[in-house]
């Protein structure tokens, strides 16, 4: 078993770099790193940019960043998984972020979340099998004055109820299944 695994052990970098050379997004990312002079302390800024460009941080992308910043891959992975904001898995076509800050919670965000989970058949942090909707929670988006708030595809929407949330979701899926 060890032998087969070790046979898989090979330098992935040449393949990644070759792939990167044909993808404009890698160029933009590299320019961003250059702006930060490839400094180690720019890692989080670079990860932000990478996620903005690619939507999520897959292994090859992390390895590319590690190589360019001259950091161990384990450090890049450790940082990328420490922060909630970074995601290593692809997101759905639509994202729905339910704010679970205290103000939203005491005003019923838990019920909104429960309704969405039941309707979409997924738990917070998951994506529907058809890749349509990713459901996330946030630890307070600072919109407490208009609680409970839900962010649909980047738009903060005030005073949500289970009914208004489901309406929004049904709009995404095209029909109320």
């Amino acid at each position: 078993m060890t032998a087969t695994l070790l046979s898989k052990k090979q330098n992935r970098l040449p393949r990644i770099l070759e792939h990167a050379s044909g993808d404009k997004r890698f160029k933009i990312l590299e320019a961003h790193m250059k702006k930060h002079q490839f400094k180690h302390d720019a890692l989080i800024e670079v990860l932000h940019k990478a996620q903005e460009l690619f939507g999520f941080l897959e292994d090859d992308l992390l390895l590319f960043i590690a190589y360019k910043l001259k950091l161990p891959a384990s450090r890049v992975y450790g940082v990328a998984t420490f922060y909630h904001f970074f995601t290593l898995k692809p997101k759905g076509r639509h994202t729905c972020v339910v704010c679970m800050g205290t103000a939203c919670y005491v005003k019923g965000a838990d019920k909104v979340l429960a309704a969405i989970e039941e309707h979409a058949g997924i738990k917070a942090g998951e994506t529907t099998p058809d890749n349509q909707v990713s459901l996330l929670t946030a630890r307070c988006i600072g919109a407490c004055g208009i609680a409970p708030a839900v962010v649909y595809d980047g738009t903060v929407t005030p005073r949500q109820t289970p009914e208004t949330a489901l309406e929004q979701l049904k709009g995404w899926t095209g029909h109320g299944h």
Partner: peptide, 11 residues
């Protein structure tokens, strides 16, 4: 890094 859930003064 206003992290307290339920606080939006700094924002």
């Amino acid at each position: 890094d206003e992290g307290d859930p339920g606080a939006f003064m700094d924002r």
